[in-house]
């Protein structure tokens, strides 16, 4: 219970302050979960190792969605992997961010007319930053991360909130692409 006499801040303001402090930590320590579906993934090793060294931004790879803050979707997503991607995204702890790599995630890229892949990633999960290019070079990947940090700083990286608010819309899109998510495969009968 905060004493109101000495701190005239309302509860919202206090919360906002805490949130800003939290944002400082969050943008300086982004842990990634790499969902290496497409060829854009090849840009990540140089970004991580000594050439560009993303650790100096406080970023690093993580093993599971629970631990990670930012989901990297590196390229095209087939319908089969989309289902897994959504599952993984929902397992991440909030606040969580998504970075889409390459033209494949923006509009389908060279696979835009394929029957097996989705074209627009942000119809299914909220994407905070897109890195354009086919494939994007490493500088732009790094640039994309710095953009994400700026968005977090300016409180604009709100995709995860959007996923709560427009959940019906996302779910409807997911359903339209995948059908009812009911798995009956050979392992589970």
């Amino acid at each position: 219970m905060l004493s109101t006499k000495f701190s005239p801040m309302s509860k919202e303001e206090v919360d906002r302050k805490w949130w800003e402090i939290g944002d400082f930590f969050r943008r300086n320590s982004l842990w990634m979960l790499m969902y290496c579906t497409g060829c854009c993934a090849i840009e990540l090793p140089p970004a991580m190792t000594s050439a560009y060294d993303m650790e100096r931004l406080g970023m690093g790879p993580m093993a599971t969605p629970r631990q990670a803050d930012v989901l990297l979707v590196t390229g095209y997503l087939s319908l089969k992997t989309l289902r897994r991607l959504i599952y993984t995204y929902e397992q991440m702890s909030e606040p969580k961010y998504v970075v889409g790599f390459g033209s494949c995630t923006i509009n389908g890229g060279i696979y835009h007319d394929s029957h097996a892949v989705i074209n627009q990633l942000n119809k299914y999960v909220p994407v905070d930053v897109f890195v354009a290019g086919c494939m994007p070079n490493t500088e732009s990947v790094m640039n994309g991360f710095i953009d994400l940090m700026d968005l977090i700083k300016n409180k604009k990286a709100n995709g995860w909130k959007d996923y709560h608010e427009r959940n019906d819309w996302y779910k409807a899109n997911q359903k339209a692409a995948l059908g009812e998510v009911k798995i009956h495969d050979e392992f589970h009968e």
Binding site: F25, N28, S29, T49, G58, Q91
Partner: peptide, 22 residues
């Protein structure tokens, strides 16, 4: 490599504490 900031571990820990987990 250049390596992270020397206080990176603090940032990591406090970031984790600020998140909403399961």
């Amino acid at each position: 490599r250049y390596g992270p900031k020397w206080y990176q571990e603090f940032l990591d820990i406090f970031k984790l504490l600020s998140k909403r987990s399961v």
